[in-house]
Simulated scan of single mutants.
Amino acid sequence: MAIQWFPGHMNLTRKAIAERIKDIDVVIEVLDARLPGSSANPLLAELTGHKPTLKILNKQDMADPARTQQWLDHYNARPETRALALQATDPAATQRLAPACHALAPGRGGLAKPMRVLICGVPNVGKSTLINALTSKRHAKTGDEAGVTKLEQRITLADDFYLYDTPGLLWPRIIVARSGYNLAASGAVGRNAYDEEEVALELLDYLRRDYPALLEARFRLAGVAAMQDEEVLAAVGRQRGALLGKGRINMQKAAEIVIQEFRGMTLGRITLETPEEFARWLAEGQQLDAQRLAKKAARASKGKKTAQPPADDGEPTPSRPSPLPGGE
């Protein structure tokens, strides 16, 4: 099942960004270092693509260090783009942001030309935590759930440095199926938009191939790479006491355990995608979406052809009664 989540306030955010971007010098996009490709919003790229961009791979302490470096190299190879990995709760690390912005827009600075920066990202990537670390104050609400920030706000970091915060923004249609599952596993998607058991199974499918040792160590299992996803989930439930009557496994409870273990980093430092994997998923998603659009266009064209006026059968057509006395 494809995962989609686009609440009404996100449409307002899209419009606000489209209006604000005209006056912005640098865009900071905050990404989740555990899923840097899936948490990079293509809609934001469309809205802000002509502006210099600073990619922040937040939550680096939770991500696989080797894969984080791969993603940094990937983004730093792009024109007018810089990428940094950090932990938003580390004030020392966040002080690297302002110099990076000035490097991307060297002509801005001073009271005559203040730096104007838009900070954006998908929900629950730690954007508000990062802002609070930058200002050493609680300017932005934080929470371990999607959609905490609802309104744009301007924050003055210095007399010549303005930061515009925007609510978390997903995109109207997620065409990469794996991205939907990764976003759900990370907490970027509202709880009502996905089935936890399905997300947990997709997560386990990836982990048992790429991080089997972490699964085995955390849940005291053996040979997970050779097991089916459902078997692993059932084994987790059995180990953690998620049981129903007569020894049956509570798969819903087991799924919640797997997702929370991933979000809480108790499984270990994990990254759910490499640049090469995401490029392949994206190409496959774009191909499937193109096929979907072609089928939709074909159905629309067929509908127009069948909706023709009835043929003249030679019978006289009754005259329409005149709406006014004396004729039309």
Rank of each mutant, 00 (worst) to 15 (best):
F6C: 05
P7M: 01
P7S: 03
N11P: 03
A16Y: 00
E19N: 12
I24H: 01
I24K: 02
V26I: 03
P36C: 13
S38N: 07
A40L: 15
N41Y: 13
P42W: 02
E46W: 06
I56R: 00
N58Q: 08
D64A: 03
Q69M: 14
H74K: 10
N76F: 07
R78G: 03
A83V: 14
A85N: 10
A85H: 06
L86K: 00
P91L: 10
T94L: 06
A98V: 14
H102N: 08
G107W: 07
K113Q: 12
K113H: 11
P114T: 08
V117P: 03
V117W: 02
L118F: 07
I119D: 09
N124W: 01
T129M: 11
I131F: 07
L134H: 07
R138M: 15
G143P: 09
E145S: 14
G147W: 00
V148Q: 05
V148I: 15
V148P: 04
T149K: 02
L151N: 13
L151Q: 12
R154K: 06
R154M: 14
I155H: 04
Y162K: 02
Y162M: 09
L163A: 07
T166L: 06
P167H: 04
P167M: 05
L169S: 02
I174K: 00
A184T: 09
A184I: 12
S186M: 11
S186E: 08
A188P: 05
V189R: 00
G190K: 03
G190A: 12
A193T: 12
Y194F: 15
A200Q: 02
E202Y: 06
D205Q: 09
Y206E: 13
L207F: 03
L207A: 02
D210E: 15
L215S: 11
L215R: 04
Q228T: 11
A235F: 04
A235Y: 01
R238Y: 07
R238W: 08
Q239P: 02
A242S: 11
L243K: 06
K246N: 13
N250G: 07
A254T: 09
I257Q: 01
R263T: 11
R263H: 09
M265L: 08
T266W: 02
L267Q: 04
R269A: 14
T271G: 07
E273V: 07
A279W: 09
L282H: 13
A290Y: 03
A294V: 08
S301T: 13
S301L: 14
K302I: 13
G303Q: 09
G303T: 10
T306R: 09
Q308H: 12
D313A: 12
T317G: 00
P318Q: 05
L324G: 03
P325K: 14
